[in-house]
C-alpha cells in the first residue's frame, strides 16, 4: 500500500487542508480587503454566493429523499421562515420523516 493511502495520513492531510483553507480565507479577507476587486459585478457575485452554495449543497439530497423528503424540506422551509430558528426548523423537518417511518 502506498504511503499516501495510510488512513492516519489521509486524516491528517484532510484536517490540515481544511484548517489551512479556512484560516487562509478568514485572514486573507481581512488583509486583502483593499485589494479585492471592487467592481459591483464581483460584489454582487460574492454576496449571492453563500445562499446559492448552501442551496446547491442541499438540493440533490432533498430530491433524492423522495416525496416525503420534499415534504419534510418544505416543512423545514416554512418553519424557518416563520420562526427564524434554525434548530426548530431542522427538528420540524426531521419530525415529518420520523412520523412517516413510524406510521406509514
Amino acid at each position: 500500500m502506498p504511503l499516501t493511502d495510510a488512513p492516519i495520513l489521509r486524516t491528517v492531510m484532510t484536517l490540515g487542508g481544511a484548517i489551512g483553507v479556512t484560516y487562509g480565507l478568514r485572514l486573507g479577507g481581512l488583509l486583502l480587503s483593499e485589494r479585492l476587486p471592487r467592481s459591483p459585478v464581483f460584489r454582487t457575485f460574492m454576496e449571492a454566493l453563500p445562499g446559492t452554495i448552501l442551496l446547491a449543497l442541499v438540493a440533490p439530497g432533498i430530491v433524492a429523499a423522495g416525496p416525503w423528503g420534499c415534504t419534510a424540506a418544505l416543512v423545514t422551509v416554512l418553519t424557518a421562515l416563520k420562526t427564524r430558528q434554525t434548530l426548530l426548523a431542522m427538528l420540524a423537518g426531521m419530525l415529518v420523516i420520523i412520523l412517516q417511518r413510524h406510521w406509514l
Binding site: 453563500p50 445562499g51 448552501l54 442551496l55 449543497l57 442541499v58 439530497g61 432533498i62 429523499a65 423528503g69 419534510a72 424540506a73 423545514t76 422551509v77 418553519t79 424557518a80 421562515l81 427564524r84 434554525t86 434548530l87 426548523a89 431542522m90 427538528l91 423537518g93 426531521m94 419530525l95 420523516i97 420520523i98 417511518r101 413510524h102
Partner: peptide, 21 residues
C-alpha cells in the same frame, strides 16, 4: 434511521439556507 438522523444533514442545511434568503 428511526430518529431520522440520516435526514438531519439535509434538514439543517435547508434551515441554514433559508436564513440566507
Amino acid at each position: 434511521e428511526a430518529l431520522a438522523l440520516d435526514f438531519a444533514f439535509t434538514a439543517v442545511f435547508t434551515a441554514l439556507t433559508i436564513g440566507l434568503w
